[in-house]
Design a protein around this nucleic acid. Structure first.
Length: 192
DNA sequence: GAGTAGATCGGCT
DNA sequence: GCCGATCTACTCG
């Protein structure tokens, strides 16, 4: 008999996989949690985007650009990469692949499941939270989450116990027109 | 509805 | 000094 383990975190191996695009798809339906001052909030991941380091013009780490900001992407998979966009929004990425390969997955949407009340208080959300800036706001993710491990007490990802209804669609990524031909790659995954 | 301005800050060149 | 892997509010029809 199978026991539903609510603490079934993804193992480190999961994040070390070489194919960040496949991983982005695999993350759909998994559960993302944060714990702030003892308050746990979390939900199903319903939208992601893959950023494939050196070869991807849309990635901050394109051409292996390694700076203070992108440094975390070069770390071993299983860390958070959080950065500020337009001065207002914090965007959460999951670092993947082995050390020195700067792959990352942007979390663009979640379906709140745990601590909905808290999430609602942080912002007026409907059932779904769409948009990377909103995801960060709903889960109270800020720049201090940069470099944070997914195996600590602050933020983590679990295997989901439920199967979500819907179908996964692959479409081009958002807001990266500057990335030329790479802007057309269908590396955005969305559960509908 | 659809289109646009404004917010506001860390990391580049 | 500039601009972004964005969001909201407010305009104008």
């Amino acid at each position: 008999m199978t026991i539903k383990n609510t603490m079934a975190r993804l193992e480190n191996d999961f994040y070390l996989h070489d194919d960040v695009v496949a991983l982005s798809r695999a993350l759909i339906g998994k559960m993302l949690f944060t714990q702030i001052d003892g308050a746990i909030t979390g939900g199903y991941i319903i939208e992601t985007e893959a950023y494939r380091g050196p070869e991807d013009r849309a990635s901050h780490a394109f051409n292996n650009r390694r700076t203070k900001r992108t440094e975390v992407m070069f770390q071993r998979g299983g860390l958070c990469y959080v950065y500020k966009c337009y001065g207002i929004h914090n965007l959460l990425n999951i670092v993947t692949n082995v050390e020195n390969i700067p792959h990352a997955i942007l979390i663009r949407g979640i379906l709140p499941k745990v601590g909905k009340e808290t999430i609602m208080k942080r912002r007026l959300f409907k059932d779904k939270i769409i948009g990377p800036g909103n995801v960060a706001k709903g889960l109270s993710i800020d720049m201090t989450f940069n470099f944070e491990s997914l195996f600590g007490e602050k933020i983590w990802i679990e295997e989901s116990a439920d199967i979500l209804q819907g179908e996964i669609f692959a479409t081009p990524r958002i807001g990266i027109d500057y990335a030329k031909e790479d802007a057309l790659l269908p590396w955005r995954f969305e559960l509908r």
